[in-house]
Amino acid sequence: MSYFSEIINGTKTLLTGMRITGKYFFVNLFTRRDVITQQYPDNIDTLEMFDRFKGEITLFHNENNEHKCDACTLCEKACPNGSLEVLGDKAKDPETGKNKRFLVKHIYHLEMCTMCGLCIEACPQDALEWGQDFHHVEYDRSKLTKVLNKPGSKIIPGLKG
């Protein structure tokens, strides 16, 4: 008797599969609701990349033009192909009177970066993060070397160094 129940059961499961794919088909035929395809050059103005997309390395700045980097150079050491250069300096802290490092220039060589993300993992302050912009094409290679800290930016005051 299992012969007949197998036929009926098999037909039922096949129809279940067809119902699922059929739903995909008709929903996308009429509404394009679930279509994943991005028609890239057309939607360049409205395109929003996903949060986890690895476009470039950026240095987080808050609204007061302050970042979290204290120039410890751990990211520079973590980078396997030397695409980060952290230039720091020391100055007397007016509150405590001790010498303290501060960031002068965070130089990022995009042309050497492989987007491995080791610098982001290495950063103890969570100062570096992924940026989603991927329009990096330039006619001149030197334009790919960027300074990550914005001009006049400082470390967030009170952040543990």
Partner: peptide
């Protein structure tokens, strides 16, 4: 075309 719609493509 049909394959595209079945697989959430265009």
């Amino acid at each position: 075309r049909v394959a595209g719609f079945f697989q959430l493509r265009l």
